Simulated scan of single mutants.
Amino acid sequence: PVAGGPDGVDLADLRAGVRRARAEGLRPRGCYVMPDFANPSGVSMDTAQRRRLLELAAEEDLLLIEDNPYGLFPADGTDRRPTLKALDTARRVVYLGSFAKTVLPGARVGYVVADQRVGEADGTVVPFADHLAKIKSMVTVNTSPISQAVIGGALLAHDCSLVAANVRERAAYARNLRHLVDGLARRFPAGGPVSWTVPAGGFFVVVSVPFAVDDALLHRSAREYGVLWTPMAHFYDAGTPVDALRLSVSAVTPESIDLGLDRLAALVTDTMAAGVTPECQGSGTVRVS
């Protein structure tokens, strides 16, 4: 695990972690990172931070595994930033893309850009993507051709542009994110014990509350209040409760968001009124995203 913050990956912690691992006789080879509207934090890395990460990867001989399922969905007035792969001049980045958020979740189709060169036993050199394709075919016996045809048809219908294919979706996701943030502001006073992030895009908002959030509270929320969310502890390595939860607003309507926020506000109000004292304040190192 590597620490994260408002700028994304903590580069000093990443470097220290790599060198610590090497001192222990390990061979760290890659860093998984989600630079755009990360899950769960919603944080995005600015372009300067992306360049610094690429420089560090070159200095420490790391591959960067860039996962980008949300990069096409900046909110209103926000420009898309160049991907790490777009800035990559030394083949340090393996880029992972998904059609789940951009075309159809049920198709279970994604893609990888892996143009690194890998030596074969016979001395020939082939793209890393060829190795990944072989492994993929052995593990999954290939992806459904029907699913691939659905994705291919959607791309052909929009001149093979995911940007063009997601104009409607981007507007809907931006609307939902704005509605969620505005709804939180209407239900919880500014400067109070409840606060939240305001991401520049994507689907996720993190709500901090004055009590520990664990699975027991989630069960109570579902059973007694009829609303689901994700404890932020699920994204940490310590396994202890954290005083925050993640909300997701991808496939919901504004009406559903209002209903969910009303129920969440009731849960938070009742929990605070009951005088619940956190057994621990969340600490630990968030997994890089």
Rank of each mutant, 00 (worst) to 15 (best):
residue 161 S to K: 01
residue 121 A to F: 15
residue 129 A to W: 11
residue 228 L to T: 15
residue 75 A to H: 11
residue 218 L to Q: 06
residue 41 S to T: 15
residue 175 R to P: 01
residue 164 A to N: 04
residue 138 M to A: 15
residue 99 F to L: 11
residue 264 L to M: 07
residue 78 T to N: 05
residue 198 V to P: 00
residue 201 G to Y: 01
residue 278 P to S: 09
residue 268 V to Y: 00
residue 26 L to F: 12
residue 57 A to E: 10
residue 84 L to N: 07
residue 22 R to T: 03
residue 121 A to Y: 06
residue 26 L to N: 11
residue 62 L to C: 02
residue 48 A to S: 11
residue 27 R to F: 11
residue 154 A to L: 06
residue 227 V to R: 13
residue 56 L to R: 00
residue 125 V to N: 01
residue 99 F to K: 04
residue 48 A to I: 05
residue 269 T to C: 02
residue 241 P to I: 00
residue 114 A to P: 06
residue 191 G to P: 00
residue 161 S to N: 01
residue 250 S to Y: 14
residue 2 V to P: 01
residue 26 L to A: 15
residue 283 S to H: 15
residue 139 V to M: 15
residue 27 R to G: 11
residue 129 A to M: 04
residue 246 R to W: 03
residue 125 V to R: 04
residue 53 L to R: 05
residue 160 C to T: 09
residue 148 Q to M: 12
residue 227 V to I: 10
residue 276 V to W: 12
residue 185 A to K: 02
residue 257 I to W: 09
residue 125 V to G: 04
residue 78 T to K: 08
residue 84 L to A: 09
residue 201 G to M: 02
residue 144 S to V: 04
residue 235 F to K: 08
residue 13 D to K: 01
residue 146 I to Q: 10
residue 216 A to L: 05
residue 177 L to K: 05
residue 85 K to L: 13
residue 39 N to T: 06
residue 125 V to W: 08
residue 168 R to K: 13
residue 114 A to E: 06
residue 79 D to P: 00
residue 272 M to Q: 13
residue 104 L to Y: 12
residue 18 V to E: 03
residue 173 Y to S: 02
residue 47 T to Y: 03
residue 261 L to K: 08
residue 194 V to Q: 08
residue 77 G to H: 01
residue 256 S to A: 15
residue 89 T to R: 00
residue 49 Q to G: 07
residue 267 L to T: 06
